[in-house]
């Protein structure tokens, strides 16, 4: 490790996080299931194919337009399971609470968790709560883990992506990232920004059943955004990726917010979107099916996997130029100069 101490950048989902995981974690934790670095681990138990995943949630503020920390905790883990084609079955829920937290806030978070879990049809079946002295945590930290069942015929993973495959994005990008960033005191913007937090297992199940075998890879572009996630996919699939700038779905307000703060939506977090890598001959039908599904009505084909150096992602710009897309290295920073 080049750094002696943990920086915020290590939690950014970009290169700094990857470096921490590969240089420190994987040095000691050597299960091949972990080493594949997928959104969840898939393994067979007594003839059943299971998926397992865990994720922790820290967000300031706890409540924001479009959602709250509880929604993220339920949706995030459900989505991690769904990204391997699994049908989520059960969730665990663990809290670390800061002394002095308003019970009222905790109750609001719990109500939200209950609602999301009911709507998703994925019950919370075990849990834990710890309280730490004031200042030792920031209000509420949540961990959720989940298990799901992968139907027999499905095999969805980064290793399935192949040359010629099309890349689809299930909706507009950057909504969550910019919403959270503009809640910070010095960077506030008013207006129509909302987090996109949403459970995607319904859409995944619909696509996998309607187009058996055509869906090769699914990834949710959370921290690090679409750009960093695609760089990872290209690296792991040992192929290159090309994107078309004009087809990237971005809402007008996210675009405006990004212009003001000097941010690039390609690098902002999403909490209710997925990248779909699929057979080219069914891509149009798949994008069509997504657009007719409530969780994907802004879906678009944004690029494809091509021959080229492993990990190389390029973007065709509106004026006919081309540029390289590299992964985020630390947290996205607003710029002014």
């Amino acid at each position: 490790m080049s750094e002696q101490y943990i920086l915020l950048d290590h939690g950014s989902g970009g290169l700094a996080s990857q470096q921490l995981i590969s240089e420190l974690f994987l040095k000691y934790l050597t299960s091949p299931l972990l080493a594949s670095l997928e959104d969840s681990a898939v393994f067979t138990v007594s003839g059943n194919c299971l998926a397992m995943s865990t994720d922790s949630y820290v967000v300031d503020p706890l409540f924001f337009p479009g959602g709250d920390i509880g929604m993220l905790a339920v949706h995030g883990t459900i989505n991690d399971l769904a990204m391997r084609g699994a049908r989520p079955l059960y969730l665990s829920l663990a809290f670390i609470l800061e002394e002095g937290l308003a019970i009222n806030d905790l109750e609001r978070v719990l109500q939200s968790i209950a609602k999301c879990s009911n709507e998703a049809g994925v019950p919370i079946v075990t849990g834990d709560t710890k309280v730490v002295p004031r200042g030792k945590a920031d209000k509420i930290f949540i961990n959720t883990s989940g298990i799901g069942l992968v139907p027999d015929e499905r095999s969805i993973s980064v290793s399935q992506a192949r040359k010629g495959d099309k890349i689809l994005l299930s909706g507009s990008m950057g909504d969550h990232g910019i919403t959270i960033m503009t809640r910070r005191a010095g960077l506030s913007l008013e207006g129509e920004l909302r987090s996109d937090t949403m459970a995607l297992h319904g859409l995944v199940d619909h696509l996998c059943t309607t187009f058996p075998g055509a869906i090769h890879t699914l990834r949710d572009p959370t921290r690090g955004g679409v750009a960093s996630t695609l760089c990872e996919i290209a690296e792991q699939a040992k192929a290159a990726i090309t994107l078309d700038e004009e087809s990237l779905p971005i809402s007008a307000s996210v675009r405006a917010g990004c212009e003001i703060l000097g941010l690039d939506p390609l690098y902002l977090a999403n909490e209710g979107k997925m990248l779909v890598i699929c057979s080219p001959n069914q891509a149009n039908d798949i994008v069509n099916a997504m657009q007719h599904h409530p969780q994907g009505h802004e879906a678009a084909i944004i690029g494809e996997i091509i021959d080229g150096p492993a990990g190389r992602v390029t973007l065709h710009t509106g004026l006919g130029g081309e540029r390289l897309v590299t992964p985020l290295h630390g947290q996205p920073l607003p710029r002014i100069c």
Partner: peptide, 8 residues
């Protein structure tokens, strides 16, 4: 000021 629903 406003642009595309964003106010500042």
């Amino acid at each position: 000021v406003e642009s595309d629903g964003i106010k500042k």
